[in-house]
Design a binder for these strands. Structure first.
Lengths: 208, 208
DNA sequence: ACCATAGCTGCATTGAGTGCAGAAATGCAA
DNA sequence: TTGCATTTCTGCACTCAATGCAGCTATGGT
């Protein structure tokens, strides 16, 4: 038996189908819109039974947030990789900058679609916010653990919440003001600008 | 025609039915749980047709957030009522403290239920977060307008986001650590503690 | 008392999501 | 390869939220 296939056949097949569901959904959402696409359509496009869809994704919205864990994991890793002289704020700034900049080329199309649907479809926005809150909580827990002397759990929650809230609040304003048909690159740079603007107070604090 | 009845009969009737829907929902959610209660049940308890329910509330979740505008309005008013020497941070701290403290006696039961369901039911949490974001955006817009020299729109978004995010992040941690069967008063004081803890960095800034 | 209109209602329909039970595919051992 | 145990897939039936429509009822103004 080969070892370098990192999964059993079952798992590889499963991963393949999962991916093809995301691909099919991306395609269909772009063509017919989110509400105009049914789960049955997506399942059919990926050639599985409608019922089976729900053993891959718990809901239609989840399709837009595959690997939501990855970003959180990256943050947690960034916290774990802190230097001995780092302050919580420094670590957090690094972690969040990193999170905002992880756009792989492959996921780019999905990311753009997601951004648009978060604006337009309440159900999607709701799910996205929920995932964000969950991520915040995990990050806060790890941060509190990493700096047991400087931060208790509640303070860590407040700190992370303030950071993420600042970025989100700034990005939201920027997105709203963007012309309806914007260049994806334009959005990307606008988000980056908003992010650094939001984090600026803390950066100044760091430079003291 | 009497003038002191501040609405037409139609509107008073409508308001009465709306309230009785909220009351019925509160009752039923407490007794049978959120998922265990159908919209049809609620409509029946308020003695209206199931179809009619949706002309009062756009969705089942809305029942838990009646008058979500009131809080926003209070914040906006607080901004409008600023003194000439106030800084954005000072105004915002006042506005948010006020928002957190507006528990009327009558809405108390609903507020407790809402808090619980936000924790337990994803759909409710999602809706709550959405309303929060909308509120943030409105507040940010007004704040930017009130301090055109100190803040542009993006910075206002970041500032408000940071405040609300800090409070929310802190509160979330507190709520999570609370024993399953907690005294409502306990929760209330915990939330207040978390709030002031979250706002502390800015209060210090103000005191300089 | 009358009429125009706003609001209420039942009916039918769509689509998400779940439970269940049988069929099919897979992993494993001989 | 064959056979067996277990996981996964799938169709079917069902519940419930939500919407469109068409007819009915109640209200407000004259």
């Amino acid at each position: 038996m080969r070892y370098d296939d990192r999964m059993t056949l079952r798992d590889r097949k499963r991963a393949r189908i999962r991916q093809s569901l995301v691909d099919a959904a991306t395609e269909l959402f772009e063509r017919d819109g989110y509400e105009g696409t049914t789960v049955a359509d997506i399942a059919a496009a990926a050639d599985i039974g409608t019922r089976t869809f729900f053993s891959y994704f718990a809901s239609k919205e989840e399709l837009l947030f595959p690997e939501s864990d990855r970003r959180v994991q990256a943050c947690v890793d960034a916290i774990a990789a802190r230097g001995p002289a780092d302050t919580p704020v420094e670590v957090l700034v690094r972690a969040l900058h990193l999170t905002g900049a992880d756009n792989d080329d492959l996921t780019d199309r999905l990311a753009a679609l997601r951004m648009r649907l978060i604006r337009e479809v309440p159900a999607v926005r709701g799910r996205g916010l929920q995932l964000q809150m969950d991520a915040q909580q995990q990050i806060a827990a790890h941060l509190a653990e990493a700096f047991p002397e400087e931060l208790d759990k509640v303070r860590a929650g407040a700190l992370v919440g303030a950071f993420v809230g600042a970025v989100t609040g700034a990005v939201q304003v920027v997105i709203e003001d963007l012309p309806a048909h914007h260049d994806p690159k334009e959005l990307r740079s606008a988000v980056e600008e908003a992010t650094s603007m939001a984090l600026q107070p803390w950066m100044a604090h760091r430079a003291r």
